[in-house]
């Protein structure tokens, strides 16, 4: 019989609350059917998942929303990951807001480091004559917001372009604010999906 006293139970609950923010790790999984790889980072209340998208998946998505083939191909070959970011905080009356600004994130390969190409930058490169309003609207909502605040329990999905060619390996340094405190982490050896 499992017998736990009240104070042991309180200790377990205390540890469950305290230990969550202490552990930070990156795990990697591979989808058995598609072969696509996903990386998950958990640090404090921030949980980030990056999942490879095949160039063909991205091309097909944007072609279906009215993008011309050339631009859909540019997007497809720009190392897009499906991104899921979640604030796992349970908020017991304390503000646990988590703010992410993609302009602070850096892609690095060896000693070279550079910022991401954000959705606003993509949008500006397309002439009005080539990309319709409805296609731009689909792009806007399908891509991850450049800046967003997540309250406890909030999450969002969206595509992020890392601007590298298919099959490239890179490291990602990410930065976020949690309860007004700056945090950072690095995910190493990410791989852009191959163009197969």
């Amino acid at each position: 019989m499992l017998c736990i006293s009240m104070h042991e139970c309180c200790l377990l609950l205390f540890l469950s609350v305290v230990c969550g923010p202490i552990f930070a790790d990156v795990s990697k999984t591979q989808n058995e059917e598609t072969g696509l790889i996903g990386w998950k980072l958990k640090q404090g209340n921030m949980e980030l998942e990056l999942v490879q998208r095949l160039p063909d998946q991205t091309r097909a998505f944007f072609l279906a929303r009215g993008f011309p083939a050339g631009i859909a191909d540019d997007l497809g070959r720009s190392c897009i990951f499906q991104t899921i970011l979640r604030n796992t905080g349970t908020d017991a009356g304390v503000s646990l807001a988590l703010t992410v600004s993609l302009k602070d994130w850096r892609v690095s390969q060896g000693d070279a480091s550079r910022p991401l190409k954000l959705k606003e930058a993509w949008d500006q490169t397309w002439p009005d004559a080539l990309v319709s309003k409805s296609a731009r609207l689909a792009f806007r909502w399908a891509t991850f917001p450049s800046t967003q605040t997540f309250q406890s329990g909030d999450y969002n999905w969206g595509m992020i372009s890392f601007g590298l060619t298919p099959g490239t390996r890179f490291d990602l340094r990410l930065v976020w604010n949690e309860a007004d405190k700056k945090h950072s982490a690095q995910i190493e050896n990410l791989i852009c999906a191959p163009d197969r």
């Binding site: 736990i4 377990l12 469950s16 796992t88 908020d91 406890s152 329990g153």
Partner: peptide
């Protein structure tokens, strides 16, 4: 085991919230 359960899943048990 109970400690690990609480550590891993306690946040998820309260996941339904609005701001």
């Amino acid at each position: 085991g109970l400690l690990i359960f609480f550590t891993l899943f306690a946040p998820a048990l309260n996941a339904e919230q609005m701001t």
